[in-house]
Simulated scan of single mutants.
Amino acid sequence: MRARIKAAALALLFTSPALAEGCRDLSHLGDSYTVCTVENPSTLNLWLRDNDDQVVGEFFSLREMLAEEGKTLTFAMNGGMYHEDRRAVGLFISSFQEQARLVTREGPGNFGLLPNGVYCVEDGTARVIESRKFAAKPPACRIATQSGPMLVIDGALHPRFTPQSTSRKRRNGVGVDGKGRSHFVISNGIVRFHDMATLFRDVLDSPNALFLDGTVSRLFSKQLGRSDVGPRMGPIIGQALPSQ
């Protein structure tokens, strides 16, 4: 009986609108989030500079650049932490080219709150990998961005997260579920790390999930007619499809 109930619950989970391709709004523990789900990671890319070696920085600039390439941006969000000059803080790989190195040491701020991790797409497969595991056996990532902290590590929440935390900020992150789907999440208000992590683990079926950034988090969604304004971004991650 318990096995049948568990199987039914899993079947409901995998058919949940929260796990469908595309972007949608949902509520979790009283907070509002937008989730953009991508089934085929080969449609994802990571951008920092344009063809003139200038920082892209804005969604409208990215859309214009892609239009010149015959592509349409379906969704995008800031794709990791960056320095004042918009360079990535940790590992940054685009089109197999490493532009910033992996950082495995503990340090200040959210990035250095170990364990941190890497979102990597290789051979059509997306993964979130803890940074020191990544360093021990680096995969051949077509794109990769490092950030921190990890939100979920092998099904467990980051050990520093508590439901009583008073640290509430606008945040965004990414997780990969049991079927290999990438879930890009942004909060529509201020949230705790703990609560966002449980969204990935309990609703989005993501045993590993990574915080990308906070406060400056922004989202573009063609489907939702949304293009957030805010501070100029560094790395941007998103999905580009051939224009029709």
Rank of each mutant, 00 (worst) to 15 (best):
I5F: 10
K6L: 13
L10M: 03
L13V: 08
F14D: 05
L19I: 09
E21T: 07
G22T: 05
L26R: 09
L29M: 08
Y33A: 12
T34E: 13
V38R: 14
E39Y: 10
P41F: 10
T43M: 05
T43H: 06
T43F: 01
L44M: 15
L44A: 07
N45E: 13
L46R: 07
R49N: 15
D50F: 12
D50V: 13
N51I: 14
D52R: 15
G57L: 13
G57D: 11
E58Q: 09
F59K: 04
S61C: 09
R63M: 07
E64Y: 04
L66Q: 09
T72V: 08
T74R: 09
F75T: 03
Y82K: 09
H83T: 14
R87C: 13
V89H: 06
S94Y: 09
S95Y: 12
Q97F: 05
Q97I: 12
V103T: 11
G107T: 09
P108A: 12
G109T: 01
F111W: 01
F111C: 00
P115F: 09
G117Y: 03
C120Q: 01
C120M: 01
G124H: 07
T125H: 09
A126V: 06
R127N: 04
R127I: 00
I129N: 01
I129G: 02
R132Y: 06
K133Y: 10
K133E: 11
K133A: 14
K133N: 12
P138M: 09
P138V: 10
R142N: 06
I143C: 01
T145N: 04
M150H: 04
I153K: 01
I153A: 01
L157W: 01
L157S: 00
P159S: 00
R160L: 06
F161W: 05
T162P: 00
S167W: 12
R171Y: 11
G173E: 08
H183K: 14
H183A: 14
F184I: 13
F184W: 15
I186M: 15
N188V: 00
G189F: 03
V191I: 12
F193G: 03
F193A: 09
D195P: 08
T198K: 00
T198G: 01
R201F: 00
D202W: 01
V203R: 13
V203Y: 08
L204P: 12
A209V: 07
L210V: 03
L212M: 12
D213W: 06
R218F: 07
K222M: 06
Q223G: 08
G225N: 05
M233W: 01
M233P: 04
P235W: 04
I236M: 08
I237V: 15
Q239C: 06
Q239R: 13
A240K: 06
P242K: 03
S243V: 08
S243M: 07
